[in-house]
C-alpha cells in the first residue's frame, strides 16, 4: 500500500508563456508511467512552500512523452513555480478526480465553453476532438477571457478554428486601446446566440470562474439544454486531493473525488455555490 501523500518527482522540461499570469509547464516523470483522463488534476508540490491543485492541460496519449500543466500565478505555490527554470524538479501527486465524461461525450455534439484559465482543463478534451474527430458530432468551442492578452493557447487557435463541422468563437470583456481585436466583445454567454448546436444529442462542457459558469448554465438551460447535459469543472480549496481533508466539499460532494466534473443536476441541490 503506497502512501497517497508522498509526491512523485517530475522534471520541468520546458516552460511557455500563455498570458501575463499563466504559463504552461511541460513536465516528465523521473519514474514510471503516468496515466490520466482529460479533465483530471494533480497536486503540485513545491516542497517547503506547499501544494496546489492544477488541471492537466495536455492529452493523455502524450503522457509517456510529457504532461503539461497550465498554471496561473495566484499564490505562494504557483508564484514559486513561476520562478523555476527548465530542469527543476517539482513534486506531483495524482492524477485525481473523475475528468470529463469521455464515454458519454462519444458520438455527441459538444459545446465547449471556457472562461479565463478554465481553458486549461478543457484543452485535453479539445485535443481529443482534434485527434479523434470521428468520435464526436459537431464541436463548437466558445472561449472568453478578460482581454485578448488573457487568452491561453493562442498558438493553437487556428487549429481549433479549423475543426471540421465546428468552430471557435472568441470573446473578451474588454480591449486595451493598443490591441487589435476582430472577434466578439462581451461575456462568454453573448456567444450563445451564434452557436448552431441544439440540445438534442449534445453535451455542454464548461470550465471557468464560477460566476461565468453560473451565467453559462442559465443561458444553456434557456436554450433547452437539460441539467444533466451540462458538465461543469468545479474549483474549490484542496489540500489532499483524495477525499480526506474535507476542504473541497460542496455540500455532500467532494470536488476532488466526486468531481471536479459534475453535471449541473449533480450540484443543483447543494449549498455554498454560485451556480
Amino acid at each position: 500500500m503506497s502512501n497517497p501523500y508522498i509526491p512523485r518527482k517530475a522534471i520541468i522540461e520546458s516552460i511557455r508563456d500563455e498570458t501575463p499570469d499563466i504559463k504552461t509547464f511541460r513536465i516528465k516523470f523521473k519514474d514510471g508511467s503516468f496515466n490520466f483522463n482529460p479533465g483530471q488534476f494533480v497536486m503540485v508540490s513545491m516542497l517547503g512552500v506547499g501544494e496546489s491543485a492544477i488541471s492537466i492541460s495536455s492529452h493523455p496519449e502524450d503522457a509517456d512523452k510529457f504532461v503539461e500543466l497550465s498554471i496561473r500565478k495566484v499564490g505562494n505555490v504557483t508564484g514559486s513555480i513561476f520562478k523555476l527554470k527548465p530542469g527543476s524538479t517539482i513534486g506531483i501527486r495524482g492524477p485525481f478526480g473523475n475528468g470529463w465524461p469521455m464515454d458519454e461525450a462519444s458520438g455527441k455534439n459538444l459545446l465547449i465553453v471556457g472562461g479565463g484559465c478554465g481553458q486549461g482543463a478543457l484543452r485535453p478534451l479539445i485535443l481529443d476532438v482534434l485527434r479523434h474527430r470521428d468520435c464526436y458530432g459537431r464541436v463548437e468551442i466558445l472561449y472568453g477571457a478578460r482581454t485578448p492578452q488573457d487568452l491561453m493557447f493562442k498558438y493553437e487557435h487556428d487549429i481549433w478554428a479549423r475543426v471540421p463541422d465546428g468552430c471557435l468563437l472568441l470573446t473578451v470583456d474588454s480591449i486595451p486601446t493598443s490591441v487589435e481585436w476582430k472577434y466578439n466583445l462581451g461575456v462568454v454567454t453573448t456567444l450563445f446566440g451564434k452557436t448552431l448546436i441544439k440540445p438534442e444529442n449534445s453535451l455542454a462542457l464548461i470550465c471557468g470562474p464560477e460566476i461565468m459558469m453560473h451565467f453559462a448554465v442559465r443561458g444553456l438551460l434557456s436554450m433547452g439544454f437539460k441539467s444533466d447535459q451540462i458538465y461543469l469543472s468545479m474549483e474549490r480549496r484542496m489540500k489532499c486531493g483524495i477525499g480526506k481533508c474535507g476542504h473541497c466539499q460542496i455540500g455532500s460532494k467532494y470536488v476532488c473525488k466526486d468531481g471536479p466534473v459534475f453535471t449541473h443536476s449533480d450540484l443543483i441541490h447543494e449549498p455554498d455555490k454560485i451556480l
Binding site: G48, G75, G79, S80, K83
Partner: peptide, 11 residues
C-alpha cells in the same frame, strides 16, 4: 516564519 517567508518571497 515571517523572516523565512521573506527570504522565499512568499506569504
Amino acid at each position: 516564519e515571517a523572516l523565512k517567508a521573506a527570504i522565499l518571497n512568499i506569504r
